[in-house]
């Protein structure tokens, strides 16, 4: 599943996901009818609207294959949020099944496919922002493991690392002051350690943090972890 953000803004992240999975020997499908995971409506408290979107999703992703998502947030919506939204609905079992098939892509690579080390190099100091919706999953650990295994890569720890970046979906527009201040604090803590690159497993956090930093006139270079892995393969001549 590409996610609505990658469908609208970050096509290269979806592309990198496909390229990496194919490199690892997976056969990738992209159901054309897909849209979004319904999280914007769910988080806004409009659960009937969220259910409408999720029912469409269940329909689009029929079958038994794993559903791979380049976003911890959308993945968590499918294996956790959706169950809340459907707790009193008769079609809960179908939603549950979709949740059980869903993986955040880095977690899938490490825990699902058993890949523990990545080929190639990335001679960069990276700050890895562990997005909140990776909590309770293996994704953050998986990302650190793979990124850290790249030749020449260094992952820098920074202050208040586990704090939220302040995006929070509709929270970013309904609480604009708090959201921006949380993001600026995150940027300050990140800049302190002077990374070459800010990496995360969710484009939403990166969109927010880059957006803030650009507005400040001091843009932070950002990249999704799956892009970093893909780029390393390309540089190594393993991928074209």
């Amino acid at each position: 599943m590409a996610t609505c953000l990658c469908d609208a803004f970050f096509d290269d992240v979806a592309r990198a996901t496909v390229e990496v999975l194919e490199y690892l020997g997976c056969e990738v499908e992209f159901p054309e009818g897909q849209t979004c995971c319904g999280q914007p409506a769910f988080n806004s408290g409009d659960w009937p609207a969220a259910r409408k979107v999720l029912r469409h999703l269940v329909d689009t992703f029929k079958g038994g294959e794993p559903i791979i998502v380049p976003s911890g947030s959308c993945a968590a919506m499918l294996y956790h949020g959706s169950l809340l939204a459907f707790e009193h609905e008769t079609d809960l079992p179908e939603v549950e099944k979709v949740g059980q098939r869903t993986w955040e892509v880095l977690d899938f690579i490490v825990s699902g496919l058993g890949v523990k080390q990545w080929e190639g190099a990335c001679e960069k100091k990276m700050a890895f922002h562990s997005s909140c919706h990776l909590r309770g999953s293996n994704s953050a650990e998986a990302a650190r493991l793979l990124l850290g295994s790249l030749r020449g890569a260094e992952i820098l720890p920074f202050k208040e690392q586990e704090q939220c970046c302040g995006f929070g979906g509709t929270f970013s527009v309904s609480f604009p002051a708090i959201s921006a201040d949380m993001g600026l604090l995150k940027l300050q803590n990140i800049r302190e350690v002077k990374p070459d690159l800010l990496v995360a497993a969710d484009m939403s956090c990166l969109m927010h943090l880059r957006g803030l930093s650009e507005k400040q006139g001091n843009p932070v270079p950002v990249r999704h972890a799956i892009q970093v892995l893909r780029d390393a393969l390309v540089a190594e001549g393993k991928l074209r």
């Binding site: 609505c4 054309e32 009818g33 897909q34 849209t35 979004c36 319904g38 914007p40 409506a41 806004s44 408290g45 409009d46 009937p48 609207a49 969220a50 409408k52 979107v53 029912r55 469409h56 689009t60 509709t170 527009v173 309904s174 609480f175």
Partner: peptide, 16 residues
């Protein structure tokens, strides 16, 4: 208050 309405979004996101 301050939250974008979701009805239109759901309409879009359920019709490919």
């Amino acid at each position: 208050r301050g939250v974008p309405p979701m009805g239109g979004f759901a309409g879009l996101a359920s019709q490919p």
